[in-house]
Structures are given as C-alpha cells and as structure tokens.
C-alpha cells in the first residue's frame, strides 16, 4: 500500500539507492565516551586513595606491684617539652638548681621546635659525647590537642631522638609554666573527680 502512494520522484531515488553503497565502518563513539567518563567519575569519588599509615607507639607497662626505683636520669641530659593550648610548646633544659632554668616558648615548625631539639642534641653530644644520651620528656597539658601529640612524636622520629617518654606527671616547673601561660593543669574530668571527693568528705 505504502509503495503505491509514493510519488515518482521518490521511486526514482529508490532505484538509485538500490545500488549497494559502501557504508562506512565508523561508529559514533560519543555515547561510549560519555559512559566511560561517567564511570570514571564514580570510581574516583568512591575510592580511598591514600592508604593510612600507622605510627607505632609503645608505652611502658604499668606494673602496680613493681615499684622499684628506676635509675635517675641526669638533669643535664634531659629536655622537657610542655605542650599547651593553641599549639604552643614550652621547653626547657633540666638543671639541679631550679632557679637557673630558662623556658623557651615555641611552635611546631622546622625553625621552632625542630631546631631546638637539634640544638639540644648538639649540647648533649658536646657534654656527654653521644647525642643519643638526650632524654626528651614530653608533657602534654590537658588543653593540648591530639594532633600535638602526633606531631611531637613525629618530631622525635625526624630528629632521631632515641629516648623519649610521654609523661603525665608535672614537676613544679611545669606547673609554673602552665599557670603562667594560661593553661589548665587538671583536666575537667579530674576536676569533677576532685570535687566529688571533696563533697564526699564534706558530708562525712
């Protein structure tokens, strides 16, 4: 039926087309590219690229029964770093005479704390002949951030300090440094515990 309705000109064209034409083998790839990039975007967004790294921490075992005295470290081999709020660091070299201590405040940077540790390593090397004799005492105040702890441990790895410890007990000097710099010495939880203790004893 449709053939009957076709005009003559059309019929002529049809006749011409009847000669088999060589069709190109080209395919339109645009859609395929679209799909490819769509999937790429999906995988890029869904992937986790940087594998997390682990920093190993070994803490000394707490032994409640064993309270034997550990050999004391000579003050001149130590270096104390007190970590306060706002990424501030206060460091000083221990001395037998507390009045002659000079406390430096510094930041986390290559010219700040790292230079100071290196300086201290040199001093220890001159005095004791081995820079590994240096003992760094890290004392984070409750206002410091977790990042500070990671940074300072990292700093120990970078400067190659062999002996260091994170210490939660504060000496008189640390307490002075903390109060002078506007840091709290006792954490909120500690404060609550103390208040509870006071309340309890008060009632009794």
């Amino acid at each position: 039926m449709a053939e009957m309705n076709t005009p003559e000109s059309g019929a002529k064209k049809g006749k011409k087309k009847a000669r088999s034409k060589k069709s190109s083998t080209r395919v339109d790839l645009t859609a395929m590219v679209d799909l490819g990039f769509l999937l790429i975007t999906f995988f890029m967004l869904a992937t986790t690229f940087s594998k997390p790294k682990a920093m190993e921490v070994n803490k000394p075992a707490k032994d409640k029964e064993k309270t034997e005295d550990l050999p004391e470290i000579k003050q001149s081999k130590t270096y104390s770093i007190v970590m306060g709020k706002n990424d501030m660091l206060y460091c000083y070299t221990g001395a037998s005479d507390d009045t002659s201590i000079k406390v430096d405040s510094t930041f986390f940077s290559r010219t700040g704390i790292r230079a100071m540790i290196k300086q201290r390593q040199l001093e220890v090397q001159q005095q004791w002949g081995d820079k590994d004799e240096l003992f760094v005492m890290i004392k984070p105040l409750p206002d410091s951030k977790y990042r500070n702890m990671v940074d300072i441990l990292d700093e120990m790895a970078i400067t190659g300090v062999k002996r260091y410890a994170i210490i939660d007990e504060f000496s008189e000097i640390d307490k002075l440094v903390a109060t002078k710099s506007g840091n709290r010495l006792i954490s909120e939880k500690g404060m609550q515990a103390i208040n509870a203790e006071i309340a309890k004893t008060g009632i009794k």
């Binding site: 940087s50 997390p52 970078i158």
Partner: peptide, 22 residues
C-alpha cells in the same frame, strides 16, 4: 593500658617529603 595493651598504632596519613628534607 589497664587492659595490658601497651603497644598500639596511631593512624595517620602520610607526609613523606618533610622527613627527607629534614
């Protein structure tokens, strides 16, 4: 530590160049 775990890992992201320059 109360549970006698004295060895653990802190998870951090890598930062390689800094160590070398140091």
């Amino acid at each position: 530590q109360e549970r006698k775990v004295n060895k653990f890992n802190l998870i951090t992201s890598g930062r390689a160049a800094n160590a070398e320059s140091a």
